[in-house]
Design a protein around this nucleic acid. Structure first.
Lengths: 146, 146
DNA sequence: ACTCAAACTTAGCATACACTAACTTTTATC
DNA sequence: GATAAAAGTTAGTGTATGCTAAGTTTGAGT
């Protein structure tokens, strides 16, 4: 394997970063769903397909589809025509997502971004901030404001 | 249309945000490609399939596929077995993406994030920051450091 | 000018995520 | 308790994004 690895090392690093972004993509939907499911359960006592569809802006059929994948992946449980529950794993992911989401949103607000933008952008950004960046956001939030 | 719109207005706002994130997703790949194509052309004089594949960490076949879509969308031109060129539209998108990407990366660095993390996270974040947030990042960068 | 490796393309496949349309189950109301 | 509306499900479709395997074209070196 002398020949195989003589790629431009910069290209290699670049490619690795992209691969990480692609991986993040695969968990985005799952994170959004479990986060929302947790919120709905907290707020209304249960999470139903129509509610999820309403909050996500997709059809019932799409939600159903996704819920099946989440179930396959061990994040939720649900029986036909019944409401949806989080597994321990799902609850853990929901908690972590919620915390990260809040920090990103609060950080943007602290930076002077208007609240509607902070809500929207944090929704997209939250899935792409590593722990190191979250820590940096936290440090900024902890700092006195001048 | 009295009945159709009596949804929870909070749900409605939430759904709209998600729709925006979903839309951003559709342009992410295009942005990454044209940004990289512009860089390769600048650096080496041309953009070839193998190079793109190498820098993106995907196969040649995947690049080919994507290039065809970009061509359909008017962002690049290319003839079989030849190198890839940006259209005016593609160049415009590449420029805008590069600028936004740089600001996000510089912002993270200024915040104290280590450089490898800044590179990786900015790659994911850049597609989800609105103009308003970019402005906030800019303001922060312009500010004297204490 | 031949030859062969590298580059590129094509075909076929898989998964995620979205949709509509049609159907079934549950539930609320009379 | 019958029935209609609401909720949920299923089937079928489409696009984006990825892959492997097999083929074609180009171009470099002899």
């Amino acid at each position: 394997m002398t020949a195989a690895d003589d790629r431009d090392p910069e290209a290699k690093r670049h490619a690795e970063r992209f691969q990480r972004v692609r991986e993040a993509h695969q968990t985005e939907v799952a994170e959004d769903y479990v986060e929302l499911i947790a919120q709905l359960i907290e707020k209304t006592g249960e999470a139903r397909v129509v509610e999820l569809a309403d909050w996500l802006g997709v059809t019932n059929a799409t939600v159903n589809n996704t819920i099946q994948r989440l179930q396959r992946d061990g994040l939720v449980t649900s029986k036909p025509y019944r409401s949806i529950f989080l597994t321990d794993k799902g609850r853990g992911l929901a908690e972590a997502s919620r915390r990260r989401h809040e920090i990103v949103r609060d950080f943007l607000l602290a930076l002077g971004v208007d609240s509607e933008t902070a809500e929207t952008d944090s929704e997209g950004i939250e899935h792409h901030v590593s722990d190191a960046t979250v820590q940096a956001f936290r440090r900024f939030l902890a700092k006195p404001k001048s």
